[in-house]
């Protein structure tokens, strides 16, 4: 398989939001789900916290009342590629727009102590790496990022986070998931290789469970 060499390392400044249960409605509010596009969500990431006004789809950042206190609005965090947060990040709605907003903003990895199931899954389909770490490690990272600007290097293949080139933290993620990011695999192509098996399964099911195939 051809690997995407850029996909092997994530290097960047860490921004952080110190709270639990950040749901996908916070990552991107409902208003922006009205878009029928797959890109262009960067200005709406964490909209409710990033701005002091009520946003509308299509209204650009420059026209908004920006909340200067919010971390992503300030340099160098506005360039950040890694987001540190706490428990149950991405819970709630299944909207993939939440991942699109993180991706479009430039976030390539999110570090948290746990994630909502559907969000976690959606991440890998869009090249965003969710990394879960135990709570004490999250605590330690928060201790660091609150003191100074921290740069991390994340080695996807070895599954190691390098901290300011001194400390190392190992993390776990299923092979098939991370390979999707490293190689940029397309799920539909992979599944369609099994199309005979699916057809056979279906043929058989039509006989054993005919009610599934009866339509009004």
């Amino acid at each position: 398989m051809k690997s995407n060499s850029e996909g092997l390392m994530i290097n960047g400044i860490v921004s952080y939001i110190d709270r639990d249960n950040i749901d996908t409605d916070q990552i991107i509010p409902t208003e922006y789900l009205k878009s029928i596009k797959k890109f262009g969500y960067e200005d709406y990431l964490f909209d409710g916290w990033r701005y002091k006004d009520d946003g509308k789809l299509g209204v650009k950042k420059e026209e908004r009342d920006v909340n200067k206190d919010f971390i992503l609005n300030n340099k160098p965090f506005s360039e950040s590629k890694i987001l540190l947060t706490r428990d149950n990040f991405g819970c709630g709605s299944s909207r993939e727009h939440a991942v699109w907003a993180l991706r479009d903003f430039g976030i390539k990895a999110v570090i948290a102590s746990s994630f909502g199931d559907i969000f976690y899954n959606n991440c890998f389909k869009n090249g965003v790496l969710p990394i879960y770490l135990e709570k004490n490690k999250i605590e330690k990272l928060f201790g660091l990022v609150k003191k100074e600007v921290v740069e991390l290097s994340i080695d996807l293949q070895k599954r190691i986070i390098f901290l300011n080139n001194q400390d190392e933290i190992n993390f776990e993620v299923d092979d098939h998931l991370i390979e999707r990011i490293i190689y940029g695999l397309d799920d539909i192509d992979i599944t369609l290789k099994e199309k005979d098996k699916i057809s056979n399964f279906e043929k058989n099911r039509k006989i054993t469970r005919p009610w599934i195939y009866a339509n009004e």
Partner: peptide, 12 residues
């Protein structure tokens, strides 16, 4: 499911 999966289910 997410939108990528909606597409996947439609297709497969």
């Amino acid at each position: 499911i997410g939108t990528s999966e909606v597409e996947h289910v439609l297709a497969t």
